[in-house]
Design a protein around this nucleic acid. Structure first.
Length: 892
RNA sequence: GGGCCUGUAGCUCAGUUGGUUAGAGCGCCUGCUUGACACGCAGGAGGUCACAGAUUCGAGUUCUGUCAGGCCCACCA
């Protein structure tokens, strides 16, 4: 049995990554029965490549999924990708542009072909990256939001909602991106503050010599004004009601209306009304039946209605309108103003509110059940406070504009009759209209990409067919995702799931944090501070990257990744690797080929049952394994991934390597022929590998495959082996106690050596251990181990240390350790004692103060009071010992 | 304008229901090429838990306020 001297994950990770897929070990089988754990991946965009956010998300999902699988649950992690409407269309358009082509030149059909081509060629990129990073998905069930089955689900939902009256079509004001040339939903508009102006313009009141001053941030829209509004309660303008104003530049007479939209407190209290270009004004226009004059078109250019400004870009028009107003001397004043412009999420172009005929989903009826699902706890957010954000959005929900003027996406299943204007919404292409005409044209628009994403948890499982998958794996158990798509995706899945399936799509929603760089900056391509997970994976290994991410992944906090964190995680992986090397080396020496776990592969209690015949370190490590298994499981269940990482790190490094392996070395020297000794070591290591597997899948698979004998009983992969479970019978308190005494004695001796400035670790010191407690028995039975670990030669005495005895003393409640040294290092020792004494005096004073407090004694639970009493006795005894030692030193 | 989160060691963060000398990783200091590992071993220094009050026998932990950051939502021209 040989393994490479250096931990080089690059040498084995790709192999296991491929094998995990080709062997099909992650394939879910509905007929397996038993407890189900199912989860759908938040489908990454096909255009995407894996970034740290994905890596974190996938790692958290993978840890949880592997853990469930190892516990024997019927486990499904369903993977797939999203067609990502605008994003993908943009990518392909850019590619076309390089060839000097536009999509319009190509035509719709050709263009769609090109996008599919692109998808076949490059769309698999992110999937390959996921496979390389070891995500344990069931790749046989991989889905794409635009594939046949999902498209059918989309049509089905659309038709059903339409028939229920929850989808409607109409002329409303929507967000329009003049670059993408499509409508956008409110969520796809991001608001950014920028510095602008507030222009005050005088509108002369017809038939008087007065004028009204309106304030606007967008003077170019005044060309489309069809009224000015004042508040009925505003005394200043009361008498003007019923009159009209003359619109400058356009020379149009428009009415003065009364409306609450005008706030007497704000500006001049007069608002210009442009029903065609502002959402507020649109509503006011409807209230007052005002005409809508469109002065800006879909390209954000001024229309013919803009008179002499026609053809200008909206921003040029703004400048020219202002100049013209200035010339007319109707510009009252200009003041700087902070404005909040909406921009297209994808291309950052300032969106233009336009009136347009679009398809909408009526959201209020869908929101209600989704609200109740969270209120009743059928859906649970972790961390919990995300439910507040969810509620806030749900309560104020507005209808969803779902039609997009794009070519890449789910074509809206509606056909327009060219003869009679009838609209036919149908699952399959209709042949003829009610009127008998066969002249039917399908609606050219496609659906918002999030429409199909909203169906993901059931569409991927075969809905609307009644499949076994659907029956088995819906509702899914858990969703792990980022807060940035809480509304886009999570909320809509909740609504669609409840509407179409009558049941929540998932019961737990774990919202992970944001990945940040070493300077706590959000990672973004534009900032150039991204760390490519594939690059660090190649450099340090997937396991190290996973571990580094998990260590910082406390719920509700952001996750910082940096080179040194990954390095530290790699050091841990390396530690495991080297422990394996030690173990393999000893197997070889003992002539043991491999490890045969025997009948049971998850038994933790066996070595303990053999009781005192079993070496202390074995009894202890199985007890510790037991505890680590318990803590790991509990942390995974609670999505406390940082605790998972921490538990494993401290168990394996601090307990397994630092103490267990060190003691085993001595034991092997002592009993070179004992195979039982090695077997316990192997057993403990094998269990540790299983414990580590969900977090560090590659490394553990590599070692486990080499270590564990291939038998009929043995699963093909460690991923299918049992996760170590907490075993009550393996709780070994005596072993834990004895071991901690051993550790205390060794540590005391090491501390003393440092105090005494014994720099040569090989120098053996003589010493005496005084104890009247269990420490003496441990020292007796484990004398060799203690002496070797601390490099001392001990005499054991069952008595308290005499006051006069030596100066190099370390005292604990259990024992006093005195080392004799040729040359006394009085200074260092004195400093140490003084520091200890100070510290003890402080805690003693504190304990005494508490115990002297009548109310404390009466009110605090007896357990706490007794605890402090007991501690006080210990402190005082230690203080006494330290003081006499210090006196001894001074006397010297 | 509304809502949410954060402030603990030089840095990045843990700290479950208030209870017994506040922890980790990285960095720093000292000493060690110890037959698994220098990606290592053994020791060590470093904190009035942002500030001010309140509740309590007892507060890093609960409440209020202040200050400082960050995020989300919103049609005030």
């Amino acid at each position: 049995m040989q393994i490479d001297k250096v931990y080089e994950p690059q040498r084995f990770e790709p192999h296991w990554a491929e094998w995990w897929v080709s062997s099909g070990i992650f394939h879910a089988e509905p007929s397996k029965g038993g407890k189900v754990f199912s989860l759908v991946i938040p489908p990454p965009n096909v255009t995407g490549s894996l970034h740290m956010g994905h890596m974190l998300e996938h790692t958290e999902i993978d840890v949880t999924t592997r853990w469930h699988r190892m516990r024997g649950h019927n486990t499904l992690w369903l993977p797939g990708t999203d067609h990502a409407g605008i994003a993908t269309q943009m990518v392909v358009e850019r590619q076309l542009a390089k060839e000097g082509l536009t999509r319009h030149q190509l035509g719709r059909e050709e263009f769609e072909k090109r996008v599919w081509q692109w998808k076949e060629e490059y769309g698999g990129n992110i999937v390959r990256q996921m496979i390389r990073t070891g995500t344990s998905c069931d790749w046989s069930r991989q889905r794409f939001t635009l594939d046949e089955g999902l498209s059918r689900a989309v049509r089905e939902v659309f038709v059903r909602l339409y028939e229920k009256g929850l989808i409607y079509r109409g002329q409303y004001m929507i967000n329009w991106c003049p670059r993408c040339l499509t409508a956008l939903s409110d969520l796809e508009v991001v608001h950014e503050e920028s510095q602008g102006n507030l222009w005050h313009i005088r509108y002369p009141v017809v038939g008087t010599d007065r004028y009204l001053v309106v304030a606007t941030t967008r003077p170019e829209t005044m060309l489309g004004d069809t009224a000015v509004a004042i508040n009925a309660k505003d005394e200043r303008y009361k008498d003007l009601h019923g009159r009209t104003v003359r619109l400058p530049l356009m020379d149009r007479e428009i009415p003065i209306i009364l409306d609450d939209m005008a706030d007497p407190e704000f500006g001049t209290g007069v608002v210009k009304v442009t029903p065609a270009h502002d959402p507020n004004d649109f509503a006011a226009g409807q209230r007052h039946n005002l005409p809508r004059i469109e002065v800006i078109d879909k390209h954000a250019k001024m229309t013919e209605n803009a008179g002499r400004f026609a053809g200008l870009d909206r921003f040029d028009a703004r400048k020219q309108v202002v100049a013209a107003l200035d010339e007319l001397a109707v510009l009252d004043k200009v003041e700087p103003y902070q404005l909040n412009a909406g921009r297209c999420q994808r291309c950052k172009t300032i969106v233009e509110p336009l009136v347009s005929k679009q398809w909408f989903v009526s959201m209020k009826p869908l929101a209600q059940p989704a609200i109740e699902a969270v209120e009743s706890g059928r859906i649970r957010f972790i961390p919990e406070n995300w439910s507040k954000t969810y509620f806030e959005w749900m309560y104020n929900i507005r209808d969803w504009c779902i039609s997009r003027q794009l070519w890449w996406g789910h074509r809206i299943p509606a056909w327009h009759c060219e003869e009679c204007d009838e609209i036919i919404v149908a699952r399959e292409t209709p042949e003829r209209c009610k009127c008998g005409s066969t002249n039917l044209v399908q609606d050219p628009d496609v659906l918002d990409t999030w429409f199909s994403s909203g169906l993901w948890p059931f569409s991927t499982l075969g809905w609307p067919e009644k499949t076994i998958d659907l029956a088995t794996y819906y509702p899914t158990t858990l969703l792990i995702t980022g807060f940035d798509i809480l509304f886009f995706w999570v909320a809509r899945m909740a609504m669609m799931g409840l509407e179409c399936m009558g049941e929540v799509p998932f019961s737990d929603v774990y919202i992970h944090g944001l990945v940040r760089d070493a300077d706590k900056q959000k990672m973004s391509k534009t900032k150039g501070n991204t760390i490519d997970p594939l690059v660090v994976t190649e450099q340090y290994g997937t396991d190290a990257v996973r571990f580094a991410l998990l260590r910082g992944a406390a719920p509700g906090t952001d996750i910082v990744v940096s080179q040194d964190r990954v390095e530290s995680a790699r050091a841990f992986a390396n530690k495991i690797w080297n422990a394996a090397r030690f173990i393999f080396m000893n197997m070889e020496k003992a002539g043991i080929e491999d490890y045969d776990p025997g009948e049971t592969d998850c038994c933790m209690g066996e070595p303990h049952e053999a009781s005192l015949a079993v070496p202390l370190e074995d009894r202890w490590i199985f007890a510790k394994l037991n505890r680590a298994a318990e803590n790991t499981s509990r942390a995974i269940e609670a999505y406390r991934y940082h605790e998972v990482a921490d538990t494993l790190y401290h168990f394996f490094w601090g307990e397994f390597c630092d103490w267990y392996v060190e003691l085993k070395k001595l034991r092997i020297q002592e009993f070179p022929d004992s195979k039982a000794n090695i077997r316990n070591l192997l057993k403990a290591f094998e269990i540790s590998l299983r414990l580590l597997h969900p977090v560090m899948p590659f490394l553990t698979e590599e070692l486990w495959q080499r270590l564990v004998r291939k038998t009929d009983r043995r699963p093909a992969s460690i991923a299918l082996a049992r996760f170590p479970e907490y075993d009550n019978s393996a709780v070994d308190f005596p072993a834990a106690h004895e071991m901690s005494l051993l550790q205390d004695i060794v540590t005391a001796a090491r501390n003393l050596r440092t105090d005494l400035q014994i720099t040569d670790p090989k120098q053996v010191l003589d010493g005496v251990l005084y104890s009247t407690t269990a420490a003496l028995h441990v020292a007796r039975s484990e004398r060799n181990a203690i002496e070797r670990l601390a490099n001392v030669k001990l005499e054991l005495r069952e008595e308290h240390a005499p006051k006069t005895e030596g100066t190099a003393i370390r005292s604990t409640p259990e024992f006093d350790l005195v080392l004799s040294v040729p040359v006394a290092q009085a200074d260092a020792q004195r400093k140490r004692l003084q520091k200890d004494i100070e510290q003890l005096e402080k805690v003693i004073a504190n304990s005494q103060r508490q115990l002297g407090d009548e109310t404390f004694i009466n009110k605090a639970p007896a357990k706490v009071v007794d605890g402090i009493r007991a501690k006080l006795v210990e402190y005082e005894s230690q203080l006494g010992k330290n003081r006499s030692a210090l006196e001894g030193l001074v006397a010297q």
